[in-house]
Amino acid sequence: MSLKTPLADAARSAAAKTTPAPPPQPVRRSLVKRIGAERFAAVLAPLGLLVLWEIATKAGLLNVQFFPAPTTIAKEFARLIGSGQLLDTTMVSMGRLSIGFIIGAVPAVIVGIIMGLSRWVRTIAEPLIAATYPIPKTAIFPLLLIIFGLGESSKVAVVAIGVFFPVVVNTAAGVMGINQIHHDVGKNFKASRLQVFRTIAVPAATPLIIAGMKLGVGMALMLIVVAEMLGGTSGLGFMIWNSWSTFRVETMYVALILISVLGVAMTLLLTEVERLLTPWNRKNS
């Protein structure tokens, strides 16, 4: 008996955690009214739009050549997943994007921190970055094609360049924003340059480094799609381009939806990484 009760209690509390008991009727009504209404609207609005879209196509109000019915897109989605084609295509693009992201972001963090710490490096690097930052990275893709050819490296390179800029600028800003008193503490306790880098610059700049990476992910996604359209035979960008030339609009929509999902997923991943890396940040606790 003595064992049974705590176990039952634990089970009950665990159950309570996963599925909270429905509140009494009056409370529930006010909840739906106050908070629930907004949530319902947030979920219902896009769902309602999809339903309207579906009805409009069935009624012949929308041209299905440009706007295929949501159910048609869903069927195409299922077909592409079933054939394994969608997973392959996504993996190809994500592979290029990940390698490009790492090649761009790692040096950006190192250069950004050094820029933030050293006035001299900043004086030299700042005008270079200011001059090259505004160039649309898509504009240099043809040059990259000449240098690296049509293979993987030109696509990885354009992603790396696109990621480098927002990360380097944000990292430098993060390090320059370090409170002078923290530098004084480092100096007073005789921290070496490497120790200042490791114990002060990197942790202090982490929130802004991650903010830069979030911008970089958006940039990377855009660039990989463009690069695959212009010089690819695989990947999501190629899938979109290819479905244009064969006029498979529903496939195009599948790729668009997938890109949107990937973008959101990567941003959420970075937010989670930030939460794990900066438990000290007020907004994370």
Binding site: I181, H182, V185, N188, T199, P203, T278, W280, N281
Partner: peptide
């Protein structure tokens, strides 16, 4: 060797 106790908040927020 010397150690300074600073005026104001000098702790590193990222360290416990």
């Amino acid at each position: 060797t010397n150690s300074m106790v600073f005026q104001g908040d000098s702790l590193f927020p990222w360290m416990n």
